[in-house]
């Protein structure tokens, strides 16, 4: 369950960003999690439900946006959605070794504060 560690790290970032923005209260937290980030959104949701009330953002709602994986073929340069996290095989030209363009995100992208 490393999602608890991720939740705690996220809430540290929330605290730092809220402090920087001069906030007294955090109303809403939006996180963006990539499909290949290694984070299970359901487990993260559970971890945040437990961790938020104990944090400086107590009372805040949260939202987890998921980002599908995308890769670009190095051979034909077309974009595709990789079938697994392992081999980025191009469905157009079957070349292996596509480069991931999105899907590894683990970001704090929005805060609603006052």
């Amino acid at each position: 369950m490393h999602e608890f560690g991720i939740a705690q790290a996220a809430l540290q970032q929330v605290a730092a960003q809220a402090q920087q923005a001069g906030a007294t209260r955090v109303h809403r937290i939006v996180l963006r999690i990539g499909a290949l980030s290694g984070v299970d959104p359901e487990a993260l949701r559970f971890a945040l439900e437990v961790a938020i009330p104990e944090s400086s953002a107590a009372g805040a709602e949260f939202e987890i946006e998921t980002v599908p994986a995308r890769a670009r073929c190095q051979q034909c340069e077309r974009e595709f959605e990789p079938k697994t996290g392992l081999f980025f095989e191009c469905p157009h030209c079957q070349a292996l070794g596509g480069t991931l363009t999105q899907g590894k995100e683990m970001h704090l992208v929005r805060l609603e504060i006052s």
Binding site: I6, Q17, Q19, S56, H107, V109, L111, E112, S114
Partner: peptide, 21 residues
């Protein structure tokens, strides 16, 4: 935890691009 702000402002949205880790 963030310290209290003596002059609270209205709710606002802050867009960020911060890596959680």
């Amino acid at each position: 935890p963030p310290p209290g702000d003596p002059a609270p402002r209205g709710p606002r949205v802050v867009d960020l691009q911060v890596r959680i880790l």
